[in-house]
Design a protein around this nucleic acid. Structure first.
Lengths: 167, 167
DNA sequence: GCCATCATGTAATTAGTTACATGATTAG
DNA sequence: CTAATCATGTAACTAATTACATGATGGC
């Protein structure tokens, strides 16, 4: 389970409430993982129980700000460096790309076009995010990861364009 | 749930037993989805119930060969062309890449090296698969999807090399 | 005879989604 | 005053993993 370690990571960047973490999950990790608040709140309780995170302050509307503990930081380091990655992925878009080859060109074409449009839209948003990060006094540590995504997008878009031309 | 449609797709390519489908799942779709036999057998029963697949022959050792029905083919077409893709992705490797930026360079380096080696090994296997497909009398319909993967690999490997040089 | 592989299933557990439920605060 | 957003939780359900369980066949 990497939900646990994703949360430890987000808390390492910055402490936050469960509500904030839910949002940051979507903003920073949406291309890799998704979790809703109903999964995040119980996991924060379990991180507490394990001594990996703790409530550092309580604010308005019953909000509770969580921070990672030293043990939590060490657990994240251990997980990243010592444990074997689980290579299994779930990517419905990729499944669709594969299955698309089973359709008639007439059915395939609009789906490919929709996919290409989506890839291009995602790329535009990534470019905007990159510009935002570069305007900050000191760009975020994860800036290079955005760069990787920025390189992969055009490769996928070009492939789709070719498929549309050939098929 | 795309397990159902992945199975319909595999059965569209070729009829097969649950056992064979489990293997073909790993061979053809491992870069997009994973399912074990304990998930596949019940799902075949549900596809039967829904009229999307049926047993076409029974062989040795109680094996049962399944094939997709016309309704199943139509359901697959409908799903691919008419339904909105679920864009949420689960990719632990990508989560790790993101979280890696939180580690000291000394801790980060060996993880990046391991990742790069893995990407390169995967690329070698894909090249071998591509060569195999090209040697067939008529290459598989999904051949272009292999090509896409072959283009993405080097981009990732290069990025990792750069990270190792800079960091 | 024994081990690998073929072949199918179920049970128990964990992970994840969707729906239900509640209340505080803020901006218009 | 009211709608949006902040904020937290639980319950019911579905999906997925891991473990348990069994037996046939073929090659050595």
């Amino acid at each position: 389970m990497s939900l646990r370690h994703a949360l430890l990571g987000l808390l390492t960047v910055n402490p936050g409430t469960g509500y904030e973490l839910t949002q940051r999950f979507d903003r920073s990790l949406s291309n890799a993982w998704h979790a809703s608040h109903s999964q995040i709140y119980p996991e924060l309780a379990r991180l507490d129980e394990a001594g990996f995170a703790e409530v550092v302050s309580e604010g308005a509307r019953g909000s509770r700000t969580w921070a990672v503990t030293d043990a939590g930081r060490e657990e994240l380091r251990r997980w990243l460096t010592e444990s074997e990655p689980n290579r299994s992925v779930r990517n419905e878009g990729a499944v669709r790309l594969f299955l698309l080859t089973l359709l008639d060109p007439a059915d395939r074409r609009p789906v490919l076009e929709r996919e290409r449009a989506h890839i291009e839209e995602e790329h535009r948003q990534l470019r905007a995010l990159a510009a935002e990060l570069d305007a900050l006094p000191e760009p975020a540590a994860f800036r290079p990861v955005i760069d990787l995504a920025l390189r992969l997008g055009p490769v996928m878009a070009e492939w789709m364009t070719e498929q549309l031309e050939d098929g």
